[in-house]
């Protein structure tokens, strides 16, 4: 074995990693909460601030929790996908209006359509922190027992919905 080949060997390993690195997104963080109980919340509803929406009310069904805001660009990108999903009626979507102004959020939903069963208001962003949200939009799939099964970071797309989220939702619904 030629010891002068060692630098070349090390270099090949590094280049291999760099090549794999090119295909990865350094800004996407896997959530440590997947497989754990979804943090609980009881928050005022966007359309009716007098009423409260609590995560406990949602036990027993599979649901999506979508963090969004009227100021967020990516939310507008994913909005048609959400509307389409809501129309199919396959899975209920609950919205979490994150660090937003009530009037603007209402106007936004009025203009672009409302895919949500109920929208909760997280004005100080506390629930966002509990869920480990670091950039809206983010979407969580939560099962009947209230456990987070999947987290989508960034805008939803039809292909992600078809390939990952809906198969998972159906499987969870059949459990």
């Amino acid at each position: 074995m030629n010891r002068f080949l060692i630098p070349f060997g090390l270099f090949i390993v590094v280049v291999g990693f760099l090549a794999v690195g090119l295909t990865l997104n350094p800004r996407e963080l896997p959530s440590p909460l997947v497989g754990k109980a979804a943090p609980e919340f009881s928050l005022p509803q966007l359309h009716d601030p007098g009423k409260v929406i609590s995560s406990n009310d949602l036990k027993g069904k599979v649901w999506l929790l979508n963090f969004w805001a009227s100021w967020c660009g990516g939310c507008k990108d994913e909005h048609p996908v959400l509307i389409h999903l809501a129309q199919s009626g396959e899975v209920p979507i609950y919205g979490m209006d994150y660090k937003d102004q009530r009037s603007e959020a209402l106007a936004w939903l009025k203009e672009w359509g409302n895919p949500y069963q109920i929208v909760a208001v997280d004005e100080p962003g506390r629930i966002g922190i509990n869920y480990g949200v670091y950039g809206v939009p983010e979407t969580y799939v939560i099962d009947k027992a209230g456990v987070i099964r999947y987290k989508q970071i960034g805008p939803l797309r039809e292909d992600i919905l078809d390939k990952k989220i809906m198969p998972l939702v159906r499987e969870l619904q059949n459990q």
């Binding site: 270099f11 280049v15 760099l18 090119l22």
Partner: peptide, 19 residues
């Protein structure tokens, strides 16, 4: 990707020559 390929050729080639 371009830089990586270039890097692999230049450095890889040099290190082989070195070995």
């Amino acid at each position: 990707l371009f830089i990586l390929v270039f890097l692999a050729i230049v450095i890889g080639g040099s290190l082989v020559l070195y070995a």
